[in-house]
Design a protein around this nucleic acid. Sequence first.
DNA 1: TTGTAAGCGTTATCAA
DNA 2: TTGATAACGCTTACAA
Lengths: 348, 348
Amino acid sequence: MATIRDVAKHAGVSVATVSRVINSPDKVSEETCRRVQQSIEALGFEPDFLARTWRTRETRTIAAVMSDNTSPHHGVTLREAAVIALAHDYNLFLCTTFFDPEIERRYLRMLRMRKVDGILLNNASDCKDEIAKFAEMQVPVVLLNRPLGDYGPMVDAVVVDSYRGSFDLVEHLIQTGHQRIGLVYSAALHKFHQHERLRGYRDALSAHEIPYDESLVRSIPVGRSFGLPLAPNMLAFPTRPTAVYAAGYGTGLAVMTLVREQGLRVPEDIAFAMFDDVMWGEFINPPLTLVRNPAETLGRVAMELIFARMADRQRPPQEVHLQPTLIVRRSCGCPSWLPGPSTPAAST
Amino acid sequence: MATIRDVAKHAGVSVATVSRVINSPDKVSEETCRRVQQSIEALGFEPDFLARTWRTRETRTIAAVMSDNTSPHHGVTLREAAVIALAHDYNLFLCTTFFDPEIERRYLRMLRMRKVDGILLNNASDCKDEIAKFAEMQVPVVLLNRPLGDYGPMVDAVVVDSYRGSFDLVEHLIQTGHQRIGLVYSAALHKFHQHERLRGYRDALSAHEIPYDESLVRSIPVGRSFGLPLAPNMLAFPTRPTAVYAAGYGTGLAVMTLVREQGLRVPEDIAFAMFDDVMWGEFINPPLTLVRNPAETLGRVAMELIFARMADRQRPPQEVHLQPTLIVRRSCGCPSWLPGPSTPAAST
DNA sequence: TTGTAAGCGTTATCAA
DNA sequence: TTGATAACGCTTACAA
């Protein structure tokens, strides 16, 4: 393989000039530039990426440290991140942590040694100190779907508006005619989103003057193997709600399983909706009403924050908020399909 | 940051000795080793990964070049690959190509310049020459779910047995009581698997003395946006089959949508089964009967092939075959639930 | 077992 | 605009 020295000799110039032709052609006379280009062609020279990386300390690599890469939502975010990376001629490390703080720390350590140029992080469980080190080294870190909190001055965040999504979904249920709406969530959901989704639920109820009934709200255990270890009476509310709202992907799967096992028809016996997008929601029967996380935008914006901070290391930390979208399909029934207490105004 | 020189000075030895302590401690006297270790501790020295990488030409990086990382099957394969990589202290590049040969070539070019230590490739569309270059540079390449073909001497492959999975699935349908079984596939499926799955279908039929009826086999267009651009009469077989077998993920989604849109009940009106695993298959109603691709094993074995070839560059190309598993759930009905011609032996 | 010293291929500084 | 040359931090013959 030809080196920059070979090219220099071939073109009759110094190595410095060749380097300039490659990195800042405007600082070289057109004449010389052309001649060097030709030599590069002639020798089939390709700059040694590793040598350059080492010299410049730029790895052109971003890492995505994700608790899970298989769930549809994360998969899409990752994909989009990789696309943006490619557009900038960067590559993306896939670091799946399985929610394990140990693995997370291990990865962060590797990434620090490897001097990655930026980090996407979706589950900063227990690693403020590691993150601080990156900040110190001026490496941009972006939190995915986690509020900024007190993560120091170098960190940005992009967060989906759980409150709004939850509010919209519950309001839709109410407008469809539901009054008794169960809420099921799990501890797997980040505290922040637990809180926000519950708040959205309560506010939607009270906006429609439906009293909040604590017995309709449940936290269930959802393990890594989604939906398996369920108490069969998980849906045994004192009085069965006409609709169940699952506050996340894991609980959604769990509730679906349970509903099926109890032989309940959706939406006739019980309406069902969930937070988080699943791409198969439209294929199954009945198609699922759900709140779509803007997963692509999440990935894209997060990467853009990385590059923005690379361009200006001094900019103040930013917390970008993304709006989820309510996707109405058929799993909740249609307005006034319900017997009993009807909606305020049944247009159509 | 401390360098190896600082450590050497601090410990009163040469840099070579420090290097040896790090890379081959057995070549250093215990006494010296301990002293150097202490200096390393004291100075908080961490070897410069980039310098080492450049010197040794070992990037400790594997790339996974995948047509798609969002489908459940690929997601799992990727996850498993990352796990194995981590166990070896390697990192994994995520390279999603969207089935675009242009992007694929672009990635392969980047990876060559970056000198990755190995490559997983699931859709070698049009890049024999690029792969040849890797082979030349002694970089292990493993084909995922593609037959070895004529990909040269450095390439290994791991392939799921499409024939067997198809045969088992169709035989199950027959044993459940079905005689008229539709097969739907799409051009998105690699030729090799198209052929193998059709062969499995035909052989299962003939093993049970059911004549092959060409009018029951259909190729449908499945775009990148799964299931959307469908002719509504896609299922309008001359005589409607009692069961439809979708030969892959994309067609599976398409068929499910169509069945729902036509108001057919599964399995009462039409039984349904598909090739390819979807993790939500067990959550929906009815739970899906399908052929599970051993996606984890695929990822694991592929990575092991990479490391095996790293250890012995001369070993002959290997094509590992993996067996898929038929997962029987409820979307095909139960033995002899069908009216009409019954199964040979209906043992409860 | 240890030390010396020659690279590895670039980029960047400084002088011309 | 160009050239000479000094880093960058490590590994590895080879010599002691």
